[in-house]
Design a binder for these strands. Structure first.
Lengths: 201, 201
DNA sequence: TGACTAATTAGACATTTATCTAATCTATAT
DNA sequence: ATATAGATTAGATAAATGTCTAATTAGTCA
């Protein structure tokens, strides 16, 4: 359900300490201890807030020796704000894509998405079955802007909001023609180039 | 403080019942009883949520006989989402306007705004002193999009998010050249046309 | 191995919050 | 004035939440 996600997102931002954490992270990556000191709270409190922010996909983290550095997840901050408006104004209907498919397909699609993504919008794992995999890939890739050029780093960050194994998924994007790459610059292909399961055998 | 407002906004949206209320209101105005019935909660609960939504300026209300009808406050829903991003990315600095003024002016400006607006961003009352009034009007009007045409109804709704007496304030906009009107269509004037206190005697 | 550092967990505590019931208020209509 | 309909308030309760301290885990380096 879309509702849960929007509520979780706003819950995550509904606390002054967490907003301050995000403001600090906007200035660059920081580790827990530093955050704790700057905000005058204990490391335990930072851990607590980090969990909430992570659950809402608002931050990513990277480990270096004993230290965990947090970074903003730009993509989710922006897309969730938009999702709120969308939910309120367009209501509960429509999972988000402009449908070319008929109702039957749409139902299949939605149930596959419900199965392979958590309620937080994270990908559990790539389906083995091709048809399902394509639907999952399309679902992810449809969050990118058409016509915009992305660096490899941006694509990695973006994919990481859905799943840790960004390398595999990025390769799948190319393989199934969702995107093309030229000298490490990535861009969406037009949808008619995307491999669709119902055009197969 | 900007932070408080952003947190209050997200707190208001951090509850499924309140989101559902907004979704229902997106379909048109509704009164408390109907909302209570559709959401399977008591009228008292609706009153509770209505207060939170009102404090965050997400809804307006209108009384007709014994019945109070709630409506969405479109303007605030959108502008607050934007404010969140702004706060996170541009940090705590800058009240929002592109500064041409020097620091002294800016301080005066901010203190006037702090004095005449509640922490919720509502206008307490129009200052009598011209200089202060112009600053207040500019502050409000700077939330409109340049180049966009507004109907009188839209302007009224917009102004109402700041103060009940929209007619007076709308007239002030025209009088001091913040906007112009042509056949009931309103549009922002370019900032250099706005009456500025420091251009006066 | 053992010492050190950063992060996490567990548990406690106070605060906030969503909801209900029952009583009260307010404006209308008879 | 009285009755009625909708909204609000007050008070109770259970659940969630933010923060702390103290104990524990996990990873690094000598």
């Amino acid at each position: 359900m879309q509702l849960e996600k929007v509520v979780a997102y706003h819950k995550a931002l509904a606390d002054p300490t967490r907003i301050k954490i995000l403001i600090l992270l906007a200035g660059g990556e920081l580790n827990g201890q530093v955050l704790a000191e700057k905000l005058a709270v204990t490391p335990a409190t930072i851990t607590h807030h980090a969990m909430k922010l992570r659950e809402a996909s608002l931050i990513n983290e990277r480990r270096d020796k004993n230290t965990i550095y947090f970074t903003l997840n730009d993509y989710f901050i922006k897309s969730n704000a938009a999702a709120t408006e969308k939910l309120i104004y367009r209501g509960v209907h429509s999972e988000g894509d402009d449908g070319i498919m008929n109702d039957d397909c749409e139902r299949t699609r939605e149930s596959i998405i419900r199965n392979f993504f958590t309620s937080q919008g994270k990908l559990k794992h790539l389906p083995a079955q091709l048809k399902k995999k394509l639907i999952v890939l399309e679902h992810i890739v449809s969050n990118l802007e058409k016509g915009r050029k992305y660096t490899e780093k941006e694509i990695n960050e973006f994919v990481k909001s859905f799943h840790e194994d960004f390398a595999t998924i990025r390769r799948e994007f190319i393989m199934h023609q969702f995107m093309y790459r030229e000298e490490s610059v990535y861009e969406l292909n037009p949808p008619e180039m995307w491999t669709k399961w119902h055009q197969l055998s």
